[in-house]
Design a binder for these strands. Structure first.
Lengths: 210, 210
DNA sequence: TTCCGTATATTCGCTGACGAGTATACGGGG
DNA sequence: CCCCGTATACTCGTCAGCGAATATACGGAA
């Protein structure tokens, strides 16, 4: 582990918070999480469910309770959260809310390697991304409107409101970047760089390669 | 694998883009990446370096060249990018730039489980996060100023400019969320929810638990 | 000359992640 | 009453990820 958390898979947090509400058996956890569409905002891989539950139990954060058989279906073990589990859940949540962690969005990686693409191609791809972002934002809007009609309270929508805001923000940033690149205003920054140099670099690469 | 990419570790993309510049041996790749502080924007775990290189070679994206011995140091294998490797690199980059992928920031998970925290605590943690974000933004500013003084061109700073913008955006969003929560304006949303109900839920939990 | 701290260069072993597979049970249609 | 598609419930094997250990070399100080 060496991890910050005793069981670091985010699925574990979801499990804890379900059991904090009420005891459940594993399969019910999976269906409940699916019903609530938690997988939209949390990285949940249900293939890891049973191993996560085992580790939570070993750490004493949950405990196995009744084994119930309904009809001729296989026995199901109902799990309960323990006191230590409740503490862990709250502590984990507090940490996640209060402390920004360094994450590595793939787009950031791409930006830092952007010179690996010829500039015109880069611009083209950025434009495409912009359009796709627009589409995603629209989709979220539609879902929000629908939710409002169903009377779902805003408290249940903060995650997606947050995501929407971030997408909008990225969208604006990209628009501005494209503008700058098209104006070649990179060249203003004096010194070696700027779009012309970048373009030249790729032009030279044609012919004398590996 | 079953992955979108033949070698999906982001370190592989970094390796490809280094070898696209010039042939190198593994340790040199590591030091170069460190020098350029690529680990700021790309998730690089150098423990995976050699296994990534092996897989890249197996996939025919790079090939081992000369084995060089300098002084009495151990032999080092210099790797070259292949044509297929260049293609893969460009294609991967194009995809990363053009196509937004669903990622799972931990904060989003926290937001979607926020009701697991009593509301006053939630507000407190959000305020703390806000302050920490301010600090991070200042740090980026400082680095940018320094870079400008050294005459480092803006092209080399886009990743961090992007990150800065995202942080600022999150900061604003959080400020607004706190405002709304403090005003209890969640209650406006009519129906079951709102801060009062949320608070009550946690109050009831004292005494009749697992 | 000898020491040792730091750089060089790589290997290894554990463990978590998770897709894909398995097996049984229910229930509705024919 | 039988069939089979879908839901229920879980297991397993593989494999990538990566921290930590290892080992040797260099070079400056004493």
């Amino acid at each position: 582990m060496s991890d910050r958390r005793p069981v670091s898979n985010p699925l574990a947090l979801a499990v804890l918070s379900l059991l904090y509400e009420r005891p459940m058996h594993p399969y019910e956890m999976a269906t409940t999480l699916r019903e609530r569409e938690k997988a939209e905002s949390i990285k949940l891989r249900f293939g890891s469910l049973y191993s996560v539950i085992d580790r939570l139990e070993q750490e004493g954060l949950i405990r196995a309770g009744e084994r119930i058989r309904e009809g001729k279906r296989p026995e199901r073990t109902v799990y309960h959260i323990t006191e230590a589990g409740s503490v862990e859940m709250r502590d984990w949540l507090r940490e996640l809310v209060s402390t920004p962690v360094k994450e590595y969005p793939q787009f950031e990686a791409a930006l830092s390697l952007l010179p690996g693409l010829p500039p015109d191609e880069a611009i083209e791809m950025l434009e495409l991304r912009g359009e796709l972002l627009d589409g995603m934002i629209e989709q979220i809007d539609a879902r929000h409107e629908q939710a409002a009609n169903y009377g779902i309270p805003a408290l249940f929508m903060i995650e997606s409101d947050y995501r929407k805001r971030m997408l909008e923000c990225e969208r604006v940033w990209i628009r501005q970047l494209i503008e700058q690149m098209v104006e070649e205003s990179w060249a203003d920054i004096e010194l070696l760089e700027g779009i012309p140099t970048w373009r030249q670099m790729h032009a030279e690469r044609n012919g004398g390669d590996e």
